[in-house]
Write a protein that binds this DNA or RNA. Sequence first.
DNA 1: GTGTTTGTTATCAA
DNA 2: CTTGATAACAAACA
Length: 292
Amino acid sequence: MPELPEVETIRQDLVKKILNKKIAHVEVVRDKAVGEMGKKFVQALVGNSITAIHRRGKLLIAILKNSKDSLLIHLRMTGQLIYEKEVKNKVEIVAGGHKMSEKDIENLPNKSTQVVIVFADGAQLFFNDQRRFGYMKLASPETVAAALKKYGPEPLTKDFTEEHLKKIFTARQNTTVKAVLLNQELIAGLGNIYVDEVCFCAGVRPQRRVKTVTASERKKIFNCIPKILKEAIRHRGTTFRNFLDSSGREGNYTTFLRVYDRDGEPCRRCQTLIQKTNAAGRGTHFCPKCQK
DNA sequence: GTGTTTGTTATCAA
DNA sequence: CTTGATAACAAACA
């Protein structure tokens, strides 16, 4: 699941790799992946180049040189952006065909490839998406502005303050910590993995009602959010199922996870077995001893 | 065949 | 109107 650290890892890599490269050719394998304006999508990209890539929460925004429109890219659950400098295979799409692992980047394009952007120097950017929830679409300045407006503060900037966390914890009295931290309109970028990790870091169970969270616990959550996210970015994100960075490599944070996907395993701090439950409709992991 | 996985949006109830 | 909870979406895997 690409969350803030995974999307940021991809963003930083792609900035180094594709900025200002001329786009020679675009192959849209699956029309729905680029939204309603398929033809316009190709027209806007061919001959153009990307001058900047921004991130807001889990959303990537690619700025185009010769267009007012921008590319909005959301990887949702299983999206990948894989860059290949050398053309290993001819761009030929095989629909259906033999079974192929999502991690199979040796043979791109593969079964989950939705869009291929070919640069003038022969390098290629593959947008793959096994579950087909993600998108790479052209958006007008108005659409971009509207999309960005929906997000809460970025947790790694000064916009994210203790005061803000206090505000959203007191305004939403009747819900859980998990639901608040997952809500992109309240804080941008946290998903299921990092919400559980932040809650462990803060010693608070995700399923706690926010109205029962003390000021001191809230402060811990406030400090843990950027701490955990930065730590994860430093290790290039978490690969739980099929996250790959733009070079096709897995994230290294997987081995650092304290609770996520560790149900039945001993807590790294106290050896008590990690438990799993459902909160806010999501699989939720916690240490019954370390988290109150 | 069944259940589980999750980011986001749609839908519904209060 | 708001808020919150839940279903739906999609595809693969155990």
